[in-house]
Design a binder for these strands. Structure first.
Ligand SMILES: Nc1nc2c(ncn2[C@H]2C[C@H](O)[C@@H](COP(=O)(O)OP(=O)(O)OP(=O)(O)O)O2)c(=O)[nH]1
Ligand SMILES: [Mg+2]
Ligand SMILES: [Mg+2]
Ligand SMILES: [Zn+2]
Length: 584
DNA sequence: GCCGTTTTCGGCCCGACTGTTTTCAGTCG
């Protein structure tokens, strides 16, 4: 799929157009197109083939033409022309905090500054001061910006950020004058990675709060401290921004600060169409009178909408649905009755089945847990031989006689490169639920990999396809797959696709989940915990499910164990038919 | 560059902070 390549190209074109001083709205159009393409699960080539590019919101005549051009020639002329004109280093300069396109363009035009190095040299030589509107303070600001840029970490995994955020929230809650505290930004929306941690506080005494906050024990560095805002770096290297607002505008501030930016813009536009104005201070009518501001929900209500869950606020159609009162009722963490994917000390996990049962029951209130260890060929993960698996299964069934949490005899079976499974059917039959996944030979063509995955999905004993895309966040792209074919097959065979909730995977991702639901695919969430302390990541998986618009019934984990087991049986029966048919 | 149950042209979110201004541009969230 060329979706991501195209997204990257349009994003880069937006940067270059910005450098060139183009119309900001045109630049927004390019960024918007990039955002649409990035999130698109269907193959852009296929959409183009059907002549439906312009049906995508934000893609019009010009951009669709450029997409076609790229698909047929492998390049976009305008992109190449821009690349000729814009030195690559200046785009990096625009990433320095405080430096934007306008300044970078001036630095380039007048001082021939083309990258960070030449900028530093120019500062050393005092050349910047020769420019109008740049004096000592600006130079200092740029110097600081460079230092910050160098020390800036990339986006942080939600699984790292969430515990940090909760610690900060708890600390703030203890401060006397604090009326309300809450996570905001991308963290509240449960994006799988966050650029920073945004926290909102309601209080009359901002200075007291920012003062106390920068002295918190977890603070490593203080970046800024004002009367209403403080920025710090915690020991984990994450930046935390705290904003303090008056209690009467808390709801509007929370709406603003939760974003996303695109969602905010859409809301503000709708307010404008009514002659009103929405900002972080409230929703105001044409006379400047407050319509709503105290409670977030009231903002949405006044605009004629249902409350939109934060996880949906990405401008992916949620506003339109909320206006019609047609939002899905999203699955909640409290609906989760069990975890399908936990590794035990039988293979590379650290916890015994007994211990997992105890934690699952006492700490999470689960009804069941799937004990899924690796299969024999995965030697690095101490995969179980057929015999060991059968022995483990016997042990688990024995434990179940007195365990209040049902331990599901399961396994995470490797899908071998030829599409066959890593255990014989006779062994798989002994398990209640079989999870299948790919751990080797990622580098296959779309056709090969799709064939490999389809074989597993069609297998009568396979119930769940784990970490279906193979992505490792920030480390490895997923392998290539024809998703439409995979989704269709999963739906027709009754095979569930996993949301692997381990913080480095979160796979399927939100967009793929949403697409899978459109095909009628069921979703199973698995923490993939190798240690009892990782079982909490279930909630990260629920975050992905909610971002993918999952309702309760879409998610197997909300079903009682009886229903799970009868579904599993059903798959074995019907899958047998389909599996045989497909094998010609 | 995109878009339209008020528009096919003329809009496109709104506000804070900063530095350099003598009335505002640039950057950011
Ligand atoms: N109305 C409006 N709100 C914005 C704009 N930029 C940011 N916001 C709001 C929505 C964001 O969620 C919130 C926090 O800003 P951030 O830059 O931290 O973005 P966010 O947390 O969404 O993503 P991140 O993971 O931090 O990159 O501020 C904007 O241009 N307009
Ligand atoms: Mg943020
Ligand atoms: Mg922020
Ligand atoms: Zn795995």
């Amino acid at each position: 799929m060329k979706n991501k390549e195209l997204a990257q190209i349009f994003e880069e074109m937006a940067d270059m157009l910005e450098f060139e001083g183009e119309d900001p709205f045109k630049i927004r159009a390019y960024r918007n197109a990039a955002r649409i393409l990035e999130a698109l699960t269907g193959d852009i080539e296929k959409i183009a083939g059907q002549g439906e590019l312009q049906k995508l919101p934000g893609i019009g005549a010009k951009i669709s033409q450029k997409i076609e051009e790229y698909l047929s020639t492998g390049r976009i002329k305008k992109h190449a022309e821009l690349k000729e004109k814009v030195p690559p280093g200046v785009l990096e300069l625009m990433k320095i905090p405080g430096l934007g396109a306008k300044t970078v363009k001036r630095l380039y035009d007048e001082l021939c500054i083309v990258d960070v190095e030449s900028l530093e040299r120019a500062i050393e030589e005092g050349k910047l001061l020769t420019l109008p509107k740049i004096r000592e303070k600006t130079v200092e600001k740029i110097k600081k910006g460079i230092a910050m840029y160098r020390s800036m970490s990339d986006r942080i995994h939600l699984g790292i950020a969430l515990p940090v955020a909760r610690r900060a929230v708890e600390f703030l809650r203890e401060i006397n004058s604090v009326k309300e505290v809450q996570e905001a930004g991308s963290l509240r929306r449960r994006k799988s990675t966050v650029g920073d941690i945004d926290i909102l506080v309601a209080s009359q005494s901002g200075p007291d709060i920012t003062n106390a906050f920068v002295k918190a024990p977890f603070v490593r560095d203080v970046l800024a401290r004002g009367d209403t805002k403080a920025s710090i770096i915690v020991d984990e290297g994450v930046q935390v921004d705290v904003r303090v607002v008056a209690p009467e505008s808390y709801g509007a501030a929370l709406q603003y600060f939760t974003g996303s930016k695109e969602h905010n813009i859409k809301l503000r536009k709708i307010a404008g169409e009514k002659g009103w104005k929405l900002s972080e201070y409230g929703l105001f009518n044409e006379n400047g009178k407050v319509i709503a501001s105290h409670i977030e929900k009231e903002i949405y209500a006044a605009l004629g909408m249902e409350f939109i869950p934060p996880e949906m606020r990405e401008d992916r159609g949620e506003v339109e649905l909320a206006l019609k009162n047609e939002l899905p009722r999203l699955v909640e963490l409290g609906d989760i009755k069990g975890d399908f994917h936990v590794h035990t000390s039988f293979s590379d996990g650290t916890a015994s089945p007994e211990r997992i049962a105890e934690v699952a029951g006492k700490q999470y209130g689960y009804e069941y847990v799937g004990l899924a260890d690796h299969s024999q060929s995965l030697k690095v993960a101490r995969g179980l031989s057929s015999q060991d698996l059968l022995k483990k299964t016997w042990v688990i069934r024995k434990l179940n006689e007195k365990s209040s949490v049902y331990l599901i005899p399961s396994a995470e079976v490797d899908i071998l490169p030829d599409g066959t499974l890593d255990y014989p059917d006779g062994v798989l039959e002994q398990l209640d639920i079989v999870i299948a996944s790919v751990h080797t030979r990622f580098n296959m063509s779309v056709e090969e990999m799709t064939k490999r995955i389809l074989a597993a999905i069609r297998h009568p004993h396979v119930h769940i396809l784990a970490h279906p895309s193979g992505i490792l966040l920030g480390e490895r792209e997923g392998y290539k797959l024809d998703w439409e074919t995979v989704f269709k097959e999963a739906a027709s065979t009754g095979t569930a696709l996993e949301i692997n909730a381990y913080y480095l995977r979160l796979d399927l991702n939100d967009e793929l989940v949403r697409e899978a639901l459109r095909f009628g695919v069921k979703i199973a969430i698995g923490s993939d915990a190798h240690h009892e302390d990782q079982m909490w990541m279930m909630e990260l998986g629920v975050g992905v499910a909610r971002r993918g618009w999952c309702e309760k019934d879409h998610v197997l984990n909300t079903w009682p164990i009886k229903k799970i087991l009868s579904w599993a049986k059903e798959k074995r029966k019907s899958g047998l038919k389909i599996g045989k048919g497909a094998k010609r």
